[in-house]
Computed example of a mutant assay.
Amino acid sequence: MFDPATTALLRAVLDEVCENVSCHETGARTHIASKILEAATDGDTTPDRLKEVGREALSGVPTMWR
């Protein structure tokens, strides 16, 4: 479980990375969120690193989710 500040950071990073992803693309958003969450769980909690992880996940999203 993350503290409220970290949770807010994770949400902000997800929103920024997914700004051009339709809200109806739940599969893509879930994939990106899981990668960001995984990084945070592993200790990567800096905004820049989380954004990088999110962007890498976005580029790896299967095209059927985009």
Rank of each mutant, 00 (worst) to 15 (best):
residue 57 A to V: 09
residue 27 G to K: 03
residue 17 V to G: 00
residue 32 I to C: 12
residue 14 L to E: 10
residue 6 T to F: 07
residue 53 V to D: 01
residue 48 D to V: 02
residue 38 E to I: 05
residue 10 L to P: 14
residue 58 L to M: 05
residue 29 R to C: 13
residue 12 A to V: 05
residue 1 M to T: 10
residue 29 R to E: 06
residue 49 R to W: 00
residue 17 V to N: 00
residue 45 T to S: 06
residue 48 D to I: 01
residue 14 L to R: 04
residue 47 P to A: 13
residue 47 P to M: 11
residue 12 A to Y: 04
residue 63 T to E: 07
residue 65 W to N: 11
residue 45 T to L: 13
residue 39 A to T: 11
residue 18 C to G: 04
residue 1 M to R: 12
residue 36 I to E: 01
residue 9 L to H: 09
residue 41 T to V: 12
residue 60 G to E: 13
residue 7 T to V: 08
residue 50 L to G: 02
residue 64 M to L: 10
residue 24 H to D: 11
residue 54 G to T: 02
residue 7 T to A: 14
residue 31 H to L: 15
residue 40 A to H: 08
residue 1 M to Y: 14
residue 23 C to Y: 12
residue 45 T to G: 03
residue 2 F to R: 00
residue 63 T to M: 08
residue 35 K to P: 10
residue 61 V to D: 00
residue 41 T to L: 13
residue 37 L to E: 06
residue 13 V to I: 09
residue 38 E to W: 03
residue 64 M to W: 10
residue 7 T to Q: 10
residue 5 A to T: 05
residue 12 A to Q: 09
residue 18 C to W: 02
residue 5 A to C: 02
residue 61 V to K: 00
residue 39 A to S: 10
residue 59 S to R: 09
residue 36 I to Q: 04
residue 63 T to R: 11
residue 6 T to E: 13
residue 26 T to A: 07
residue 2 F to A: 08
residue 33 A to N: 05
residue 39 A to F: 02
residue 1 M to V: 12
residue 49 R to G: 01
residue 32 I to P: 12
residue 38 E to T: 10
residue 23 C to P: 12
residue 59 S to F: 11
residue 11 R to M: 06
residue 14 L to V: 03
residue 27 G to C: 08
residue 41 T to R: 15
residue 44 D to F: 05
residue 63 T to C: 06
residue 22 S to K: 03
residue 23 C to A: 14
residue 34 S to I: 02
residue 27 G to D: 08
residue 62 P to G: 02
residue 17 V to E: 00
residue 35 K to W: 07
residue 29 R to T: 14
residue 19 E to Y: 15
residue 59 S to C: 09
residue 64 M to Q: 13
residue 36 I to P: 01
residue 4 P to V: 01
residue 23 C to E: 15
residue 46 T to G: 15
residue 15 D to W: 10
residue 20 N to E: 08
residue 33 A to V: 02
residue 43 G to C: 04
residue 34 S to C: 05
residue 21 V to R: 02
residue 61 V to H: 00
residue 59 S to N: 11
residue 52 E to R: 15
residue 39 A to I: 05
residue 41 T to C: 11
residue 50 L to S: 01
residue 3 D to H: 10
residue 20 N to K: 15
residue 3 D to N: 15
residue 62 P to S: 05
residue 48 D to Q: 12
residue 54 G to C: 07
residue 27 G to I: 04
residue 38 E to S: 13
residue 37 L to C: 06
residue 18 C to M: 06
residue 66 R to I: 14
residue 21 V to N: 01
residue 11 R to N: 09
residue 16 E to C: 07
residue 7 T to Y: 03
residue 56 E to Y: 14
residue 11 R to Y: 05
residue 3 D to G: 15
residue 32 I to L: 11
residue 19 E to W: 14
residue 39 A to Y: 03
residue 61 V to Q: 00
residue 53 V to C: 05
residue 15 D to R: 10
residue 15 D to E: 15
residue 6 T to Y: 09
residue 42 D to S: 08
residue 6 T to D: 12
residue 34 S to M: 07
residue 16 E to Y: 10
residue 39 A to H: 08
residue 30 T to H: 05
residue 9 L to F: 03
residue 22 S to D: 08
residue 66 R to L: 15
residue 18 C to I: 08
